[in-house]
Design a protein around this nucleic acid. Structure first.
Length: 195
DNA sequence: GTTCTAGAAC
DNA sequence: GTTCTAGAAC
């Protein structure tokens, strides 16, 4: 009786399952972001383009295939067309930013699961760009040009990247300007302060 | 991937 | 004192 009374008073919304979604491991975050309307900027039957949650430049997007493709290693030769399509969609989006220079590529050893093509403007002006590793992930060979990845897949039937150790080595390299010879050292910083 | 923080380095 | 770094947690 008491139970029946309580349940009859309960508003309809309570009958919906409002339990929070199961916690997923952080490395699966892209699969969540793909479905976040606040992040999605383009979408069709094959791909989703989202804003990077922690943009490392003024414009930083990720093109993600809807097909489950965990990483570069899992790509088969037949899927080079998908990679071409991802780059094409990225370049189509870039048309909206005629004055902005972009690069299109993949991280050699990404931390997040699900293949994602970075489309990043070359200003690298962002409060989220905080560490040497951030910089080097876009400005050393750690950043694999989309065209090179596609060529490799088509010529060799697989994407050849590098070992995690080789990746770490690149991320740990000294900072170096992507436009000129400048390399910020303690000495250079001291001299700059004196000028 | 990010954030936080303790200890090292400056 | 401040800054940098590596490790753990998320």
């Amino acid at each position: 009786m008491a139970t029946a009374a309580a349940s009859s008073k309960r508003p309809a919304v309570d009958s919906l399952d409002v339990r929070p979604a199961k916690k997923t491991h952080w490395s699966q975050g892209l699969l969540t972001s793909m479905n976040d309307p606040n992040l999605v900027v383009e979408s069709d039957d094959r791909i989703v383009i989202i804003k990077d949650k922690y943009p490392k430049a003024r414009y930083h997007f990720l093109v993600i295939p809807k097909l489950n493709v965990p990483n570069l290693k899992s790509l088969k030769r037949e899927q080079s067309e998908l990679l071409r399509y991802m780059e094409t969609r990225a370049r189509m989006l870039a048309v909206n930013y005629p004055q902005v220079e972009f690069r299109y590529g993949y991280h050699a050893i990404p931390s997040m699961s699900q293949l994602h093509l970075h489309m990043i403007s070359q200003d690298f002006d962002s409060p989220c760009l905080k560490t040497k590793r951030h910089w080097n992930s876009f400005n050393t060979r750690y950043f694999l040009e989309s065209a090179d990845v596609i060529r490799c897949l088509e010529e060799r039937g697989m994407v050849v990247t590098m070992t995690p150790i080789a990746g770490e080595k690149l991320l740990d390299q000294p900072l170096k300007c992507h436009k000129c010879v400048y390399s910020p050292t303690k000495y250079a910083q001291t001299q700059a302060a004196l000028v």
